[in-house]
Structures are given as structure tokens and as C-alpha cells.
Design a protein around this nucleic acid. Structure first.
Lengths: 231, 231
DNA sequence: CTCGTTATTATGTCTAGACATATACTATAT
DNA sequence: ATATAGTATATGTCTAGACATAATAACGAG
């Protein structure tokens, strides 16, 4: 454990004392001033160390009440959702993708509510298959709001994937993520080359630019895929 | 957007300018000193604002090179994995759980490697069903390393769930999380009250105390369950 | 005993400096 | 041309203060 900075020394020290059960869930830790005296540093340095720990969910901090050990720590797993190409290449496999559909059509009912647009509005329906070492890896079924992203109709998605184009050209946005398990639909099974009904992992994501939804995508991973993370 | 603090004003200002595509992915932002002059504040305040944005993955910061807009932002979704009881109660449902098994037995082969212990070692095999409004919600199949947690053999798991006991009594630890889709096994289907083979969401988690594995748990959620998160 | 007021206190934010350090750039010597 | 040493620079860390603010605790009046 390389301890170079004062705030990291303090952070690691507190972590060690927590693992040694010196402070139990619910207990109040010493105040910033007490820590500052103990470590012979400024209060701001203690503040940084404790805030760092609070951001991971181990500690809870409140004005006047002080710093306490979280009783029911909500385990915050930071899942990184990489661009698929990078994920595949990081495993040392070759990445390729095939454009399956890219047409402007009327939004189906379940999408108009999701995009919060009136019925009858058209949007870009985009389907693509991502391959790892030339084997089906991920099937992508996406709707793109062309009202917000009009330029996208000119893009050649045979050379760049929609995901990567959007990451580079859509302004930074917030999003909603949903992970579920489903039986492969006929469409998904066909493209992934598996039997219909097989359990596959689905990730659904809606991204927004300010108040406007940009895109909704349903990612169907091939059987055996795992989303991993450390906490 | 309530902007009370200087660093939040700066953060929101930068976010807005990013969404207006004033700086594109790969571009270098002004230095901290320039921002400090622009906002009439100390450099430390700018530092906090920009570090805040860097922690979300939007910006990348490096000494001397400066601050630049991330080209391929790894979407960091912070999934909160709450204690099941809280998750159910947060939905306004009543929580209950049933202890199905709690016996000391020899570790199967696939677990000895996971726990990194010699073969023949015994561990606590713990199975429980968590119910939401008296309906099966989550089936838990857990192994607990009794070498590390000897006290656990005395606990009455009919009154408190293993998860909650461990959260309160195991020292803070790191863990590995894996999310996958699987066909319900006979055991899982029986307890969840569903047909064998139905696609269900599985969360597997191993938690460690320092170098010692404490527990491995496989959580089988009822069909229709979604893990949600914002990014 | 209850309600409202006041003091206290721990954290939140901020400043104006300082030195440290990684790293890109430049100049010099080989 | 290439390796090496030096310089400049932007961020990282830190200090010793200051005032702000939320929330608890103590107090006092009715």
C-alpha cells in the first residue's frame, strides 16, 4: 500500500482501523480537528481523506453530527460500461460489426412514451451486430431521436458503430440503465446464432441531452456473458 | 439547478459548455488559473470542481498536460446493491425471509478454488428465500468461510438475514460482483415457485476481508426483476 | 411539560499563498 | 540524427486561517 500523501495515509489508516473493528457500524468517528491533531496536519487534509471515504459509502458525514460508520452500507458497485469495441479489443479479440438495419420509420407505441414525443413521429431504427473474433457477441437494437440528432441520418454506420458516433458527437448527457434477464426473442436469437428462448443478459439504456431523449438501446449479449465489477 | 457554492457553479458552467459542444472530446480545457480568473475565485475551488467532473469520467486530468474532455468515456454506472430488506421496504412492500438451510458441510470443488482453501475444508452452507409481500423475491445460496467468521455458527438466522448480519459484523471488505442471466435450476425454480429453465437474473458476489474470502453468494432474482441505475 | 430561542459544534466551503511532481518541450552535447 | 540534460508548466498536495451552515443541545418562558 503505497502511502505518499498525507490524505492517503489518513484514508488508509482509517480503513485499517475500520477493518480492525475499532469503530463499528453506527459509531461516530473523531472530529476532523482531532484527526488533524493526531496526524499533525491541516483540517482540510483530513476533510479530503474522510470525504473520499464517504464517497465510497463507508462513512456518512453530516454537519454538526459528525462522521459515522454507515450502518447499512449501500454497496456502490461502479460498473464500467465500455464501448463494445474497446471491451472486445481489451480481451485481445478482433472487433467487427455488421449493420443490419438503419431506416427512418414511425416510432412504435412503447417508444413514443419513452421518448416523450407525440405519436406518429418518425425516428431512426438502427440494428447492428457486434462480433468478437468474427463470432456474434452483442446484438444492438436502437432507436435514435432524429429531432434532436438530425445529422445522424448522413452518417455511414458501416465504418463506425452508432455507439461510438454518439459518444463522440452527442453532447454529454445523463442516462438510465436497466439490467435484466430475458429469453432470446426470434430476432435476437437469429442474429446471435442461438436458439430462441435461451436466457440472455439484456442491458437497456436511455440517454438524454438535458430534457430531450437522444437514444434508447437494447443490448442483447450472447449466452455466457457476465457483467463484472469490484466493490 | 440550485447553484449555491462556487465550485458547483463552476462545475455546472463547465457541464453546460460541454453540452453546448464548446469543447469537443479530446479538446483541452483552460487551466485552473484561467478558470480561477474567469470566476474570480481561488485555484483550489476550480480544482475541486474539475476533479469532481473528472471523477465521473467526463474529464481527464494530467499534470502539465492539463484537463481534456474524455474521448471514449467509460460510462461509470454506480449500481447500488442495497440490502434486500431495504430494497423491498423501499417499494412499500413487507419484507420477510425464510431460512431453508444452514449446515456445516464439506466445500464442493468449485468452492474450494474460489475460497482458496485446501480440499476437505468445511464451510457453512446457507440457503434462504427473501419474500416481498409474502411472495418469493430472491433466492440466496451462500457459502460462508467459518475459518474467518467462526462466530457465525451461533447466529440465529431465522431472525436476521445472513446478509444483514455479515454487513454489521464482518469488517469492511472488498468484493467482486458478477451479473449474468441463467436458466433457473431445479433448486432455484422450486423455491422461487417458477418453472425450471426460466430466464432469471443472477448476481454472484464474493466478499473478502483483506486476503481472506468471507463469503460467496449467488442471488437468484424472480423473473421480471431489473437492476436499475442512472449514469 | 411543551414550544420557541439561543448557543454550540462539526462539517462545508473558501482563500491566498506555498512547495512538489509529472511531463511536455527545448537546448545541448554526443 | 540521437541521446541527455535542463526548463517551463499545469495539476497535486498542503497549510493556517476564515466565515457559512446545519443540526443538536441547552435554556427559558409560558
Amino acid at each position: 500500500m503505497p502511502e505518499i500523501n498525507t490524505w492517503q495515509i489518513i484514508k488508509n489508516n482509517v480503513l485499517r482501523r475500520l477493518s480492525e473493528r475499532q469503530w463499528l457500524p453506527g459509531d461516530t468517528l473523531p472530529s476532523e480537528m482531532e484527526f488533524a491533531r493526531e496526524f499533525g496536519c491541516a483540517r482540510a487534509t483530513v476533510n479530503k481523506a474522510l470525504n473520499e471515504l464517504a464517497s465510497t459509502g463507508i462513512l456518512e458525514r453530516k454537519r454538526k453530527s459528525g462522521t459515522r460508520v454507515t450502518i447499512n452500507p449501500v454497496r456502490k458497485a461502479t460498473m464500467s460500461i465500455p464501448v463494445t469495441r474497446q471491451e472486445i479489443q481489451a480481451r485481445g479479440c478482433t472487433y467487427s460489426h455488421v449493420l443490419i438495419e438503419n431506416t427512418l420509420k414511425r416510432l412504435p407505441a412503447h417508444m413514443t412514451s419513452r421518448f416523450n414525443v407525440p405519436g406518429g413521429v418518425k425516428a431512426l431504427h438502427h440494428k447492428a451486430l457486434h462480433l468478437s473474433d468474427h463470432e456474434a457477441f452483442l446484438y444492438e437494437d436502437r432507436w435514435i431521436n432524429t429531432i434532436v440528432m438530425p445529422d445522424i441520418q448522413e452518417v455511414d454506420f458501416t465504418t463506425i458503430s452508432a455507439n461510438e458516433w454518439l459518444v463522440g458527437h452527442a453532447p454529454y448527457s445523463r442516462g438510465e440503465l436497466s439490467i435484466l434477464s430475458a429469453a432470446a426473442s426470434a430476432d435476437e436469437a437469429l442474429h446471435l446464432g442461438i436458439d430462441e428462448g435461451r436466457p440472455i443478459l439484456i442491458v437497456e439504456r436511455t440517454t438524454w441531452s438535458d430534457t430531450q431523449p437522444i437514444t434508447f438501446v437494447r443490448l442483447a449479449y450472447r449466452p455466457g456473458y457476465r457483467l463484472n465489477s469490484t466493490l
